[in-house]
Write a protein that binds this DNA or RNA. Sequence first.
DNA 1: TAGGCCATCTGGTCCT
DNA 2: AGGACCAGATGGCCTA
Length: 195
Amino acid sequence: MDSVFSDTDTSCDLFPHTDDEDSVRGSSMRGASPPPDQPQQQQKKRRRGRGRSDASAQVVKKSRRLKANDRERNRMHNLNDALDALRGVLPAFPDETKLTKIETLRFAHNYIWALSETIRIADLQAGRGGEPPPLRPAPSPASDGSAGRCWSSGGSSSSSSPAYCASSPGSPAAPDDLLPRDALFGFRSFAMGIY
DNA sequence: TAGGCCATCTGGTCCT
DNA sequence: AGGACCAGATGGCCTA
């Protein structure tokens, strides 16, 4: 499939960033942590009396480390790409600033829950043929103010509720065509409403 | 300026 | 043995 989450695609050349030299002195370049426990002087001292094998071993070790760094960088880039793809699927307003990683994950979680809840309600309605149930999940029993604006199902149904209380939004994120635009307002804060 | 977010490096652990 | 995954550390950038 075209899944974004191509688990271990080592084939990703998303970033022509394979700068060996770059990663070699990545620490100094990005200001990343300089090896705190390995001052060069110590290394020099330790080298005393050792044969060439030690030096070559160091070279091998360093080369392995650099390769590992490169792989790790790629891995994180893949992860970020997947995260970006996820952002692309989630509803958002143009003026909304980019969701952070944690916001994206939390919002996706809640959004999926909202969708499944919508389906569940629709199924219920179809099976019964009665009057349409409210499209929006009922406000949580504990929510009578600004504080407890949870839109969890309260564990009332089969669907596992996210039980996450959003700090602000009064309504859950839901499919765009099912909910008015204002239902999506503030989903950013909603996204944050986990834990 | 403090705090949040992020990218990167790094060493350890697990898996193939 | 080598690669993937993970968590901690570190420093840069941005915003309130």
